[in-house]
């Protein structure tokens, strides 16, 4: 019991010396990163800064063929040698960018799990009904195929499927990409609701203005390295963030 309490007290995710290279080119060189329980951390940066590379490497997953090294600890357990589905089952869910739903399966079929997720301290397993409550739009379209959904609906479906696996930590890769501003606010707003229910979230976003509204802490990546890190409120005032991404002219 005491070890469980200790584990509960520590951060849900701890990363040390994470390096990723594609065909010899270093895409990420991260000295350290932590995500606390119930914390929403935003990772921002320009195209090619290594944001997607980071969340994919945490899940041990990629559509490419990267070389990854470094320590990844989830809830006190080293997971960096695990294959993707083992990490997923341990409670680290990734909603990738791009192809994120099964196009030939209905919404309802997409919202079913490949395994029985263990509910436990820090792991809330959402039911399909709870997902429909969270995203009523999905309920309306439950018999549609994944390929028939709009970009926003796909995002909701991808997030919904991840939540049904009872994640401790949700990794989201550019959920706002290609969405109308109203939907961006809705999808990102949901993140606050989820964090309120105890979920930890690492959110990769290019839309800094939207991200800053929902995250607790912001990490700025440039060329694969962390160049700035701090509470969202302060970061919004940092001239580097303001200049680079909010379009302000200093």
């Amino acid at each position: 019991m005491s070890t469980q309490v200790e584990a509960m007290a520590g951060p849900v995710l701890q990363v040390q010396g994470l390096q990723v290279a594609y065909a010899g080119n270093r895409a990420l060189d991260l000295a350290a990163l932590k995500v606390g329980r119930g914390e929403v951390v935003g990772v921002v940066g320009a195209n090619g800064a290594g944001k997607s590379t980071l969340v994919n490497a945490l899940a041990g997953w990629s559509r490419g063929d990267p070389r990854v090294s470094g320590e990844v600890t989830l809830d006190g357990t080293r997971i960096d040698s695990w294959v993707p589905h083992e990490r997923i089952r341990a409670g680290l869910a990734l909603v990738p960018e791009g192809r994120l739903v099964f196009g030939r399966m209905s919404v309802e079929e997409n919202l079913s799990t490949a395994f029985v997720p263990p509910a436990g301290p820090g792991r809330r397993v959402y039911s399909r009904e709870e997902i429909y409550d969270l995203f009523p739009r999905l309920k309306e379209r439950c018999q549609h195929l994944g390929s028939q959904l709009s970009g926003g609906e796909r995002q909701m479906l991808g997030i919904g499927r991840a939540l049904m696996m009872g994640p401790q930590l949700l990794l989201l890769d550019e959920p706002s990409i290609g969405l109308a501003p109203m939907l961006v606010a809705q999808v990102l707003g949901t993140m606050r609701t989820l964090a309120g229910q105890g979920l930890s979230i690492l959110l990769v976003e290019q839309n800094v203005r939207a991200a800053i509204e929902v995250v607790d802490r912001l990490v700025l990546l440039e060329r694969g390295r962390v160049v700035l890190e701090g509470p969202a409120a302060q970061m919004g005032n940092d001239p580097r963030i303001a200049q680079a991404y909010l379009g302000a002219h200093a």
Binding site: W61, P84, V101, F102, R104, M105, F115, P117, R161
Partner: peptide, 24 residues
């Protein structure tokens, strides 16, 4: 069936199936 669904997931997109927790 559940097994059939896993098989169809792998058939459509084995990479995404990994993220759904499937042992591909």
């Amino acid at each position: 069936t559940r097994i059939g669904r896993l098989v169809r997931m792998v058939a459509e997109d084995p990479k995404l199936a990994q993220l759904a927790g499937v042992n591909v």
